[in-house]
């Protein structure tokens, strides 16, 4: 039996991620552990964006805002735990559900308004909401305003898991990444997923066969926001720092780039996109601080010659081989 190229690359990527900790430890390069940690967290956020952008054709330009909300839940909790000695506010079992609740509520409200629009208007409205939340962050004087907030303690998961240990934290994030991938796979193939993909394909037809499209798109938008909120919890803990910059529209743009570069509407595309963006940024910025001069044209090439992104290119490769 021959293994398809796409499957091989996907499995290879997961295995590669799984063996990062022992390698970085052997080489005494903890920096790269942190780098891959960031890569996986951004991949989770990009997967959540792909759910609505790639599968549902909703180009949300404010998706980083939900990541910021999740991060601020951790940041504010840790702040009061340290400053005011309210220990339970650092509890990770509180942070995660609270982040999900807050980010999905925000997505519900933002989605309820923006999903009534289409195309470029949808992009502009989600961008506007994202920037609104960014400026809310800038306005939080107590929590460092635009300087942000340093975390003096990470989310506390008690005896269950100590995420102060970066290796354990790494495997937690890897497990969540795999869970997100599997959940997305199921969701996209389910009845709900069929409706969302139908909305991308032909929304007018969807209504004509009797499906109230709006409410399904809104639920998808909310679910994506909730997942991105969890990514925010992880990112805050990874960086030990929270700031409004996490919600800036350029961060949302990065997530879109990851999805487009990796392959819209594909399962593993956002992971590939996140990997390329994080690694290219790291290595090119070591060569020149104007690394975006190199990265920009690369993106243009993908947009012009490889519409399906990396995952699409793998698929084309498989077809040529077959």
């Amino acid at each position: 039996m021959r293994i398809p190229v796409g499957t091989a690359v996907a499995a290879g990527s997961i295995v590669a991620l799984a063996i990062v900790p022992p390698i970085t430890e052997a080489l005494r390069e903890p920096f790269y552990l942190g780098l891959c940690l960031r890569l996986m967290i951004l991949a989770i956020a990009a997967i959540s964006l792909n759910l609505i952008l790639g599968f549902g054709n909703m180009v949300s330009f404010g998706h980083a805002a939900y990541m910021g909300i999740g991060a601020y839940v951790v940041g504010i909790g840790a702040f009061h735990a340290v400053e005011d000695g309210i220990d339970w506010l650092a509890n990770g079992f509180l942070h995660v559900p609270l982040a999900i609740a807050a980010s999905s509520l925000a997505a519900l409200v933002i989605g309820a308004i923006s999903i009534r629009t289409r195309g470029v208007y949808f992009i502009m409205i989600t961008l506007a909401f994202g920037q609104m939340l960014y400026f809310v962050g800038v306005g939080l004087e107590v929590y460092g305003a635009d300087d942000g907030l340093s975390l003096y303690m990470r989310s506390d998961f008690g005896d269950v898991l100590d995420i102060n240990d970066n290796t354990r934290f790494y495997y937690l994030v890897l497990a969540l990444l795999l869970a997100t991938l599997y959940g997305t796979k199921r969701l996209v193939a389910s009845r709900f997923g069929l409706v969302i993909r139908g909305a991308r394909s032909n929304e007018r037809r969807l209504a004509a066969i009797g499906i109230p499209v709006y409410r399904y798109k809104l639920v998808a938008f909310t679910v994506a926001g909730a997942i991105c909120g969890v990514a925010g919890v992880l990112l805050a803990n990874r960086t030990d720092f929270v700031s409004p910059d996490m919600m800036h529209w350029t961060r949302s743009g990065d997530l879109i780039i990851m999805v487009v570069l990796g392959g819209m509407g594909t399962l593993f595309g956002p992971l590939y996109g996140a990997a390329v963006l994080v690694l290219v940024e790291e290595f090119l910025s070591g060569v020149t601080e104007h690394w975006q001069i190199v990265f920009g044209p690369l993106l243009v090439l993908v947009a012009v010659y490889a519409r399906g992104g990396i995952a699409g290119a793998l698929r084309a490769l498989e077809r040529r081989r077959g």
Binding site: R186, L187, A189, S190, R191, F192, G193, L194, V195, I211, Y216, V219
Partner: peptide, 9 residues
């Protein structure tokens, strides 16, 4: 169609 898990195909 709020069925999120089972394979529709």
């Amino acid at each position: 169609s709020f069925r999120f898990w089972r394979d529709a195909a």
